[in-house]
Structures are given as structure tokens and as C-alpha cells.
């Protein structure tokens, strides 16, 4: 049995699998809800991906392990932001299941070394990201991340 820590997030979003997939893989959209990070990749298995900040620097990098639009995306997760433990690469899986007029998005973040500082901070981060993504897809407006970040800091 695996002893590495994982976190699991689930959110129902009123949208289509295609729009949800686009929200995950289009940098102009991720910029609106992913702490300003624009995702970039050619979206093939084995390719690199990264989230670039306004200054063009990578906030987050990874390699795509598995990609099956609009159902599943698996990639490694190596963060470049300051002030948190440099854990070994972890792994993120997005799974999209249509449920009538909504989609169930399940995000699994695993292979943490334990409840590390990074594991805890990603728990706050994904809550904000997924909640903002839901808001963007359902209302056309993301959350005001600056407020959300200030409130949890």
C-alpha cells in the first residue's frame, strides 16, 4: 500500500467537458484563475508544460505523463515559488466526468513526502484555484485572487 501522501479535490462545475478542458489547457484562461500563471505546452504525452507568470518566469513546471482530452491529464509538479520546501516532484491528475449539465472535476495531487509545508500550501492553493475556475466557467468571472490570497495569508 502506498504510504506517500495524496490530496483529492472534487468540484462540480456547470459546464461542458470541452469548456472545462479549455479552461485547464488555455494559458489566456489559466491566467485568470491560476494565480496569474499562463499555462504553456504543446499538450502531448512526454512534453514539458509550465505556468508562466507576468514576468515570463516559470511559477510551476512539469512533464505531461498522460493526456486524453477532454477527460484526463496527468503531469508532474515542480514549483518555483519562494519560501516553501523544495520537495521532490509530485504528480497532479485531472479527471473530468460529465454529469448531466455539469462536470465533476477530480484533481488528485500525490507523491508528497508527507504533510509537508508544500503539501499544506497546495491544499490552500488548489481550493482557491478550483473555486475560481468554477466561478470563471459558471459566471464568466474568476475570483479576485488578490483578495482571496490576502484573506488566507
Amino acid at each position: 500500500m502506498s504510504t506517500t501522501l495524496q490530496h483529492v479535490y472534487r468540484v462540480y462545475i456547470r459546464t461542458t467537458p470541452q469548456r472545462l478542458w479549455q479552461a485547464i489547457t488555455n494559458g489566456d484562461l489559466t491566467k485568470l484563475y491560476f494565480f496569474g500563471g499562463a499555462v504553456q505546452s504543446d499538450w502531448r504525452a512526454g512534453s514539458a508544460m509550465r505556468y508562466a507568470g507576468d514576468d515570463g518566469q516559470s511559477m510551476l513546471e512539469g512533464e505531461i505523463f498522460e493526456i486524453d482530452p477532454p477527460r484526463k491529464l496527468v503531469h508532474s509538479f515542480i514549483h518555483h515559488w519562494e519560501g516553501e520546501s523544495k520537495d521532490p516532484p509530485s504528480r497532479v491528475t485531472y479527471e473530468i466526468e460529465p454529469h448531466g449539465e455539469t462536470c465533476l472535476l477530480t484533481l488528485t495531487h500525490e507523491h508528497f513526502a508527507g504533510e509537508t509545508e508544500l503539501a499544506k500550501s497546495t491544499q490552500r492553493g488548489w481550493s482557491l484555484i478550483l473555486s475560481s475556475m468554477k466561478s470563471l466557467l459558471e459566471t464568466g468571472k474568476p475570483l479576485a485572487m488578490s483578495d482571496a490570497v490576502a484573506a488566507t495569508a
Binding site: Y9, V11, S127, A150
Partner: peptide, 24 residues
């Protein structure tokens, strides 16, 4: 069993952050 914090965040966003955003 996994803690899913997203519903709590969504509640927070729906009410608290809305009022906060007026302040800010």
C-alpha cells in the same frame, strides 16, 4: 478518506470575499 476543501472555499468566495472586495 480525503478532506475536500473546495466547497468551503466556494462558500467563502460567495459571501466573505464578496464583502472583502468592497473594502479593498
Amino acid at each position: 478518506h480525503f478532506l475536500n476543501p473546495v466547497p468551503i472555499q466556494s462558500l467563502y468566495d460567495r459571501w466573505v470575499s464578496k464583502y472583502r472586495s468592497r473594502w479593498t
